[in-house]
C-alpha cells in the first residue's frame, strides 16, 4: 500500500467536496438578460433628451439594480424548476463574493452624485470617467471572485471588466496627453461606452456560457 494513501484520500475528498459545492445553475440566461438590460439602458440613455451627468449616474444605478433583481428572479425560477432550495451554500458564496465589490462601487458613486448635485462647476466628464472605471474595476473583481465558485466564463467576464476599467482611464488620460490619439471622442456619450461594456460583455459571456455550460441533467 502506498504510504501516502491517506493523504491522497483526503485530497480526493477535498476535491470532490469543492466540485460538488460549485454553483451549478445555468448562467447563460442570466448573462443574456443582464446584457439585454444593459443594451436597452444604453439606448434609453442615448435617446433621452436630458443629458446630464446626474441622469447618467441615476440611469446606470437603476440599471444595475434592475439587472440584479432580474438575475435573482431567474436564479430563483431555476431553483424552483429543479425543486431545490434557492439559498444553498454555493449560492450564498457567490452572492457573498459579489456583494462587497458591488456595494463598494455603488457607495463610491455617492460622492460623485453629491458633487454633481451641488451644481458647482465640477469637471463632470472626469467625474463620470472616474466613476465608470471604478464601477468596472469593482464589478470585475466581484465577478472574478464569484467565478471562483461557479464557472470559468464568469471569471473571464470579471477579467474583461477589470481590464476595461484601467484601459478606459488610460484612454481618457491619453486623450489629454496625446490629442492626436483621438480617444476623447469616446467620451462624447458615456452611455455608448456603458452599453458596449456592460451590455456587450454580458452578451458575449452569454454566448460563451451557452456553448460551454453543461445542460442541467435530465432527471
Amino acid at each position: 500500500m502506498q504510504p501516502n494513501w491517506a493523504e491522497e484520500n483526503l485530497q480526493v475528498i477535498r476535491t470532490i467536496m469543492e466540485r460538488a459545492a460549485l454553483y451549478r445553475r445555468t448562467l447563460a440566461p442570466l448573462m443574456l438578460a443582464t446584457g439585454l438590460i444593459g443594451i436597452v439602458a444604453s439606448g434609453i440613455g442615448l435617446l433621452t433628451p436630458i443629458q446630464t451627468p446626474l441622469t447618467f449616474l441615476a440611469l446606470w444605478l437603476i440599471t444595475a439594480t434592475l439587472a440584479m433583481g432580474v438575475s435573482l428572479i431567474i436564479v430563483r425560477r431555476q431553483a424552483v424548476m429543479a425543486r431545490e432550495p434557492f439559498s444553498t451554500p454555493a449560492s450564498r458564496r457567490v452572492i457573498g463574493a459579489l456583494y462587497a465589490p458591488l456595494c463598494a462601487g455603488a457607495l463610491l458613486a455617492l460622492p460623485a452624485v453629491v458633487l454633481l448635485g451641488t451644481g458647482r462647476p465640477a469637471p463632470a466628464e472626469s467625474v463620470l470617467t472616474g466613476v465608470m472605471c471604478v464601477w468596472m474595476g469593482f464589478y470585475g473583481c466581484g465577478l472574478n471572485a464569484a467565478g471562483q465558485y461557479s464557472s470559468r466564463g464568469v471569471r473571464l467576464l470579471g477579467w474583461g471588466f477589470i481590464g476595461t476599467g484601467p484601459l478606459l482611464a488610460t484612454l481618457y488620460v491619453g486623450g489629454f496627453l496625446i490629442p492626436e490619439l483621438g480617444s476623447r471622442v469616446l467620451w462624447t456619450n458615456p452611455h455608448a461606452i456603458m452599453g458596449t461594456t456592460f451590455g456587450g460583455f454580458h452578451l458575449v459571456a452569454a454566448g460563451y456560457l451557452y456553448l460551454t455550460e453543461s445542460r442541467p441533467p435530465s432527471p
Binding site: N9, V12, I13, I16, M17, E18, R19, A20, A21, P85, T88, P89, A90
Partner: peptide, 11 residues
C-alpha cells in the same frame, strides 16, 4: 467515498 464526499458538500 466519492458519493459520501459529494453529499457532505450538498444536502
Amino acid at each position: 467515498l466519492g458519493i459520501m464526499s459529494a453529499l457532505m458538500a450538498r444536502p
